[in-house]
């Protein structure tokens, strides 16, 4: 299935783009992150949370095909 991944703030600095769509099997969030670590090794040094369909999820959440977002530390206000 195709998954759109959105990158923000310092994460987008590492990936050098704000979003991309990749083809990925419907496995777990952790497997997608492992895939991204290979593609963007510098991500391993970054702290981020993961959202699927705008809700925070854990590594053990199953991918649904909904939008994934990598969210660096929040800085509102």
């Amino acid at each position: 299935m195709n998954i759109t991944i959105k990158y923000f703030g310092q994460i987008a600095e590492v990936t050098k783009q704000t979003n991309e769509t990749i083809s990925f099997p419907n496995h777990l969030v952790s497997e997608l992150i492992e895939h991204l670590y290979v593609k963007y090794p510098e991500l391993k040094n970054k702290s981020f949370k993961i959202a699927q369909n705008q809700e925070l999820v854990s590594n053990s959440t199953k991918l649904t095909g909904g939008d994934i977002a990598l969210l660096p530390p929040f800085a509102g206000g």
């Binding site: 923000f8 310092q10 959202a51 660096p72 800085a75 509102g76 206000g77």
Partner: peptide, 19 residues
């Protein structure tokens, strides 16, 4: 709330704000 802040210094370098 997922808001991100790039703190810009006078010499145009930056760092990322963390709440």
């Amino acid at each position: 709330v997922p808001v991100f802040g790039k703190e810009i210094f006078e010499d145009d370098t930056h760092q990322w704000k963390v709440n």
